[in-house]
Simulated assay, not measured.
Amino acid sequence: MFEVTYKLSSCINRKKYKTENGALRAIWRWLIKNEHESYKLALLYAPHEDVRDYQTAEELPFEKVEDKVVDFYASNDWLKLRYLAFEKFGNQCSCCGNSPVNGAVLHVDHIKPRSQFPELAFDINNLQVLCGFCNLGKSNKFDTQWR
């Protein structure tokens, strides 16, 4: 669970999010909405990580494409690489063997976490196919290669 504390000069609010990506998107929207406020701060509390603070939307880990902010996982480069990873590594979880036939939702996982190794974000040799359960269990705490 990810928690965000939103601080303006006049108030403080807290919200919880299921995913880091959801929390970061919400922070981005909030910072854009409040860009003219004199004091604003968003604090992101992630499990087993130091608190991250953001005061401007530019500080968030999103790519700029044609003057629009794009989430990494919605970028064309990632979507193409994701497709290639499924072609190369198959359509089943490299850890437990589940597949869509068993009802599994498959993810393309960064073996070495993108948060710690951003230079490997687009390296197909740093990718593996995991089901949602195995990927969420792995999180960014382990760099086990299952393939």
Results as ranks from 00 to 15, higher is better:
Pro118Gly: 07
Glu58Arg: 10
Leu31Val: 09
Asn98Met: 13
His107Gln: 03
Leu60Pro: 01
Ala23Pro: 13
Lys7Ala: 02
Ser115Phe: 05
Asp123Tyr: 03
Lys40Phe: 02
Glu87Ala: 07
Ile111Lys: 01
Leu120Ser: 00
Ser99Tyr: 00
Leu41Pro: 02
His48Gly: 07
Lys68His: 09
Ser94Glu: 11
Ala74Ile: 08
Trp78Phe: 08
Pro113Phe: 02
Asn125Phe: 00
Arg114Gln: 04
Ala57Gln: 09
Asn91Ala: 04
Pro100Phe: 01
Asn91Lys: 11
Leu31Asn: 06
Lys18Thr: 14
Phe2Asn: 12
Lys15Gly: 02
Asn135Ile: 06
Leu41Gly: 01
Tyr73Phe: 12
Cys11Phe: 06
Ser9Met: 12
Phe133Trp: 08
Trp78Tyr: 10
Trp30Tyr: 07
Ser94Gly: 12
Val105Asp: 05
Phe72Ser: 02
Asn34Gln: 08
Lys64Leu: 15
Ile32Tyr: 03
Gly22Gln: 11
Gln92Ile: 04
Glu66Gln: 15
Asn125Trp: 00
Ser38His: 11
Trp78Asn: 02
Arg82Ala: 02
Asn13Val: 09
Ser75Cys: 06
Trp146Gln: 05
Gln145Phe: 07
Trp78Lys: 04
Asn91Trp: 07
Arg29Asp: 08
Asp71Ile: 12
Phe117Asn: 09
Glu87Cys: 10
Lys112Tyr: 09
Leu127Val: 01
Gly137Asp: 04
Leu81His: 03
Arg82Ser: 05
Trp30Leu: 09
Ala74Gln: 14
Glu59Met: 08
Leu43Ser: 13
Asp77Leu: 15
Ile12Gln: 15
Ala23Val: 11
Cys96Asn: 06
Cys131Gln: 05
Ala74Pro: 01
Glu63Met: 13
Ala74Val: 08
Leu120Ala: 02
Leu41His: 04
Gln92Asn: 10
Arg82Glu: 03
Asn126Met: 06
Asn13His: 08
Ser38Asp: 15
Asn140His: 11
